[in-house]
Design a protein around this nucleic acid. Structure first.
Lengths: 209, 209
DNA sequence: TAGATTGTTAATCGATTAACAATC
DNA sequence: TAGATTGTTAATCGATTAACAATC
């Protein structure tokens, strides 16, 4: 990996697709894959794929291709999936409980270690073997259990105060499903997963063309 | 709107954010907003915002700003939100039922008109006032109820066959939550909402820097 | 009128595509 | 060796940023 060169977000967002596809290829019992084959499965040109990988090092063998397992492990390390980050979901409504139950996260090495809500009827229930705790203990528990990632699934109106609490408690990143722009101190990374953006974009494309 | 000029996806994906923020500003009782204020709330430069809008026409008044309600209506029309698209969710697992319950879609004018699953225990139940029907009736019901958008929330292994059925039945667009790349005939637009991409990207950023 | 703010053109920046030398 | 395929440099394309004239 080249430390000082900045890598485009477009490249980073394609790495999980490569990773996922390499896993599928591995499950098919294939050991070696070319940039043409791997890119082809994703609708990505082989040049694009090779350029993306080149940002981090040399992973292939000229005239041969890429060793599936080795490339998968390398991309996993680049993405930091070998860190097994601890996550908490805040806001156990419909979306929050769906996220708490999402099995794909486990497959990527993430660990769900806490759930939070404010509703006394929800507190104390168990989802996916994790107990829902009172949101007023959020800060304490984030510190105690060394939680790295906070998943915000509360209504938009409460998202900023949750983010503030997470930030104070030393969270590293926030995955935000509330449809609102939040502000946090420098050094905390936010990914906004605003579902209405995708759906509205779809509406645009079927309206035109 | 300029018919022949192609508009960047980056611009289109920002329009829903403008729309959402204009609604919030309207709710605050504010009638006129500048590109500086509107962009500022979203962390977008005023130049970027004006450039985005310029792709579709002239919506502001020099020296004054934008009339909040008028701009909101115009962006809504550009996004096609005034069409009130009919939607169906296929796959009523945790994520599917969360999507079926998601209230923000109603606020954007989308209509949930059908739910589908294969599991006999799920078929016949009701979510958000809509009955879950047998997935084998998917094609017929899509045609009968004039469903425009299919939301795929089935396991990756079944996503392609659902997409094939939707395509045959005249769907206009697919909003895909299955972590897999699907192929559909030209003219059908797909938005992939691959949750593992966002989370892996977050992992990357907290691992580095 | 003076001040403010848009819409648009020009300049810069960044990402993708194409070409090809290196080499397995 | 010949064929295949990577890694990298150069060329193109597209998006963002800066500047400013138009005008409310």
């Amino acid at each position: 990996m080249k430390g000082q060169v900045s890598i485009s977000n477009a490249t980073i967002d394609r790495l999980p697709l490569y990773f996922r596809t390499l896993r599928a290829i591995h499950d098919e019992g294939i050991d070696i894959v070319s940039s043409d084959e791997l890119g082809g499965r994703l609708g990505i040109t082989p040049e694009q794929l090779r350029k993306d990988l080149a940002a981090f090092g040399q992973f292939g063998k000229k005239g041969v291709g890429y060793y599936v397992n080795e490339l998968k492990r390398n991309i996993g390390e680049i993405l930091g999936l070998d860190h097994h980050w601890n996550m908490a979901v805040i806001g156990i409504g419909h979306l929050g409980s769906a996220l708490a139950n999402y099995q794909n996260f486990v497959a990527l090495g993430f660990r769900l270690v806490a759930l939070f809500d404010r509703d006394p009827h929800v507190i104390g229930t168990t989802i996916n073997h994790v107990k829902v705790e009172d949101a007023k203990d959020l800060g304490r528990i984030v510190r105690e259990r060394d939680i790295h990632i906070g998943i915000i699934a509360v209504p938009a109106a409460f998202a900023q105060e949750v983010a503030d609490c997470l930030a104070e408690s030393g969270i590293l990143g926030i995955w935000n499903f509330a449809p609102v722009k939040m502000s946090v101190p420098d050094g905390i990374y936010i990914v906004n997963e605003d579902l209405s953006v995708g759906l509205s974009s779809l509406s645009y494309h079927i309206t035109h063309g």
